[in-house]
Write a protein that binds this DNA or RNA. Structure first.
Lengths: 266, 266
DNA sequence: GGATTCTTTCCACTGAGTGAGAAATAACCA
DNA sequence: TGGTTATTTCTCACTCAGTGGAAAGAATCC
């Protein structure tokens, strides 16, 4: 049961959308009602309206996020402008390494995965496009975190930090030392901090002054993680992406910050 | 100016979302108002509400599709269930060919691109994830079209067909003959019918009885298109994807049609 | 086959949304 | 720079779209 009596109608639409998550990708009316706190009758009607607008899909008595909504979502800057431009670089990384390739931005204090390539040669990970993982237990997350300002970091460390595995570091002191190393060397690493057996290496992607907009990383079995080999590839990809973004935006007569403001502002 | 006086509030939210498209990925309040037909004041307020719910992002006076909306959209079956499962197979295709890899479903009489891989080795195409192209001028489109029932085809041919290049075929007779060949050989081809200089080859992906749910295809420069070499790769990928989907769904105790109903119903 | 649970429809009430207009900015131009 | 125009933001009385409790209709279960 979530906050029911939220004012505007728009809020209710959003409330219904947020009732869906990775583990609940299809819901019935009554599930929808109990998860949102809306009366059943109301949930039923709004869901029906949403189906008519393709915001939800319906199949029998189960509702799920609509294909139409997905389609519109692809017009967001993260996908239309950012992911599309980064893709060729990510594919080159995949070809060269065969490992999981991750591209994430910082959003609401977490790493939001804008793209992820996994092939048959790659180890399983729990990330997915559109998924979120903590900043302090992922390669891309640390690469993003390392370059945030002190205010951000203070806020970040003021909350309790998740600890997905026994190797996850949650102690401010050692994490801060690690971030210092990331800044010095220009790349981050993790060792089984998110998933046992997996290691990751990542680098930030800068596009304007201030903190990086995104980060690219590789996740492999820990025995295959080799910074010597991988860091140069990642740095090439990151600078290629920066440059490609710059070009594409200058063509459009816009300053970078004006487009990818979200991560920078938060 | 679009249909303004649409009843429900949900319809208005959708109206605003639909005001954005590939060529208008950011809009001001007045643009929003004129493109939707809503009064400026109203557009302003609804857009504000939508920003608060992360359905839209705002930056200065420009609104765009929200990162939050994109994130929710990734929970749709096309992405969460279908694209994610198909991805490793698509990557193998890319590695083997270096060409554009396309994965599309049939939606509202068009090919809707669920995934597209383009690397530096690939020729430029106008497709993109979340984009739409006609069925009769694309490889994936023809592969989907060939297996639709007579009713669908009659309806399809009853409308005027687009003609993006001089090589596009729009004549029902020759297209029908071509579809017959697709059914016989199990793959489709196009020759500069969408973009001059490009050729494509595609195969359907079946997951249940009835028409295919999706199609995989490769687009290359026409001099590099070689059915001998490419068709077997595509067929392997398609059957791999079918199987992987079947497995993943049996695990979830669901019949295929129950999940990917959209394309089948329309 | 009766009980339970969930979906769908109904309808009188009401407050949330509406939109014309005005005020406040911002952009433009000479 | 100052005057003009375009756009964004705010306001408020009106009203109709949305509300939600309740009851009917389907499934489902034991």
């Amino acid at each position: 049961m979530a906050d029911a009596a939220t004012g505007s109608m728009v809020a209710r639409v959003a409330l219904i959308l947020r009732a869906f998550d990775e583990d609940h990708d299809s819901l019935t009316v009554s599930e929808l009602a109990s998860r949102t706190g809306l009366p059943v009758g109301t949930a039923h009607r709004i869901a029906g309206d949403m189906v008519a607008e393709r915001l939800l899909d319906r199949n029998g008595t189960r509702y799920s996020i609509g294909t139409g909504l997905w389609e519109q979502g692809e017009l967001a800057a993260v996908s239309l402008r950012f992911r599309e431009i980064a893709l060729p670089f990510l594919l080159s990384l995949y070809e060269a390494s065969g490992e999981n390739v991750h591209l994430a931005i910082l959003d609401e204090g977490e790493a939001l995965y804008a793209m992820r390539l996994v092939g048959h040669r790659s180890v399983p990970t729990i990330s997915r496009m559109g998924g979120r993982l903590p900043l302090h237990t992922t390669g891309v997350g640390k690469a993003l975190l390392a370059f945030q300002d002190e205010e951000f970091l203070r806020d970040f460390f003021s909350r309790p930090l998740e600890r997905p595995t026994v190797h996850s570091r949650v102690d401010e002191g050692s994490l801060r030392a690690e971030l210092e190393a990331v800044r010095r060397h220009g790349f981050s690493v993790t060792n089984q901090e998110m998933t046992l057996g997996n290691a990751s290496i990542a680098v930030p992607i800068f596009v304007a002054d201030g903190p990086p907009y995104a980060a690219v990383g590789l996740v492999s079995h820990l025995t295959r993680a080799d910074t010597r080999r991988v860091v140069p590839m990642l740095k090439d990809a990151a600078s290629g992406i920066s440059e490609a973004l710059g070009v594409s935006l200058d063509g459009g007569r816009r300053r970078w910050r004006d487009v990818f403001h979200t991560a920078i502002q938060r």
